[in-house]
Design a protein around this nucleic acid. Structure first.
Lengths: 217, 217
DNA sequence: ATATTTGGCGTACAAGTGTACGCTAAAAAG
DNA sequence: CTTTTTAGCGTACACTTGTACGCCAAATAT
């Protein structure tokens, strides 16, 4: 067992632990499991319909070895949601950079988001589906990820003079609409996607100008 | 086998068919199956996680008898969605009557909808969850039910001077927000439900006044 | 050098699944 | 009355699932 001998050696110790053959290998098959799970998600296969054995099979380990990494499928699910949430947040940071160098905030954000759902449909599906899933822990985890968006946007609006309540109401509505558009585009033909995005922009503009009218005169 | 002897006897014939002992009994167990399925839906059990055998057990029939009524679980699912959609549409007709005799359209609609989700959480869950489910046919069926709402509301707005595009964008956004609020309230404490409804009203007002500002001057 | 920890495997089991097949009794048709 | 139709049942089968248990070999600790 590894243990920390001296506090000042902390970083070194961690480094050693990370590089140890065992930990490295363990991390690798952990990733295999995660990737196997993500890989099996599709329009016809939700996380709830994955089985431990299927995942293990694709990860090239024995079913029972799964337990060396996750307590059960729920724990794997939480991990997946964390990862997907992170990916989504990174994306929105990218959007922020994009529109800070000019262009419409709304258009840029919608486009960025729609690009994401188009390129990572299964990740988006996971979040969207488990939001109304049958496992409380997963629902909560997804809600938390979405909350990140709402709060971030809400802060942005608050800085621009809206009250906290109004900022939150606007943000929540906007996020709901963007997610709705994303979901809609999943089953849509690629020709219709542009239309969906355009409509989402219109809808966000309604909210923005409606809120402005009511709260900033 | 029943058959129609003369065209003019059509209605009578149908009446006879409906009252025949067999058809009556068949209809009864069909309802048992449907009710059994609805009964098993809960926060922890989605339609996708129901099994044919479980449903049959609760409906008090042998597993194989299920096939006398539905080709498979998917067909049962479609039936459930039809029923739930119908219930929801009836509800909104009630809302219409309510606000035609005075009161805010938005507040009345939101309140009616939130009442519904509170009193029939499982019906709402079914629609909401299968909207992003793994069965294309079910997703489509739910989308169609939601479309009813959007189109109805859209017509209402079109009559009031908005262009077709603007009406549709507004309606879609409003429905998305109301559904979002409904979903949010499912896991919320009953104390928070009022707040959620109030926020939804605010959000709908933003859309309404934003659209008005941009399209009606 | 010796002892311990641990990631991974194979076996085994009980429980559940969908559904094919053939039978029966009662209702409907002739 | 006789024949046909059919809702429902019981049996049976081939799968799949989660997971308990014990073993092994290699990495790590002592």
């Amino acid at each position: 067992m590894c243990e920390f001998v001296v506090i000042s050696d902390c970083k070194l110790e961690i480094l050693i632990v990370m590089c140890s053959v065992r930990t490295q290998q363990k991390e690798r098959t952990r990733r295999n499991i995660i990737n196997a799970a993500l890989n099996q998600l599709s329009a016809d296969k939700s996380f709830a319909s994955l089985s431990l054995r299927e995942v293990a099979r694709e990860a090239q380990i024995a079913p029972t070895s799964f337990y060396r990494h996750f307590k059960d499928m729920e724990e794997l699910g939480l991990t997946l949601i964390d990862e997907c949430g992170l990916a989504l947040r990174q994306l929105m940071r990218k959007a922020r950079k994009r529109f800070e160098q000019g262009g419409s905030v709304i258009v840029t954000s919608v486009d960025t988001f729609m690009e994401f759902t188009e390129q990572n449909p299964n990740i988006f599906r996971l979040l969207f589906h488990e939001r109304s899933g049958t496992t409380f822990a997963l629902r909560t985890a997804v809600a938390r990820e979405i909350q990140f968006f709402i709060v971030e946007l809400s802060d942005y609006l608050h800085e621009r003079g809206f009250s906290r309540d109004s900022s939150y109401a606007q943000s929540e509505a906007m996020v709901a609409i963007v997610f709705n558009a994303g979901a809609e585009s999943l089953d849509a033909l690629s020709q219709q996607r542009g239309l969906i995005a355009k409509r989402a922009v219109t809808q966000l503009r309604y909210i923005a100008s409606g809120a402005k009218l009511q709260h900033l005169g």
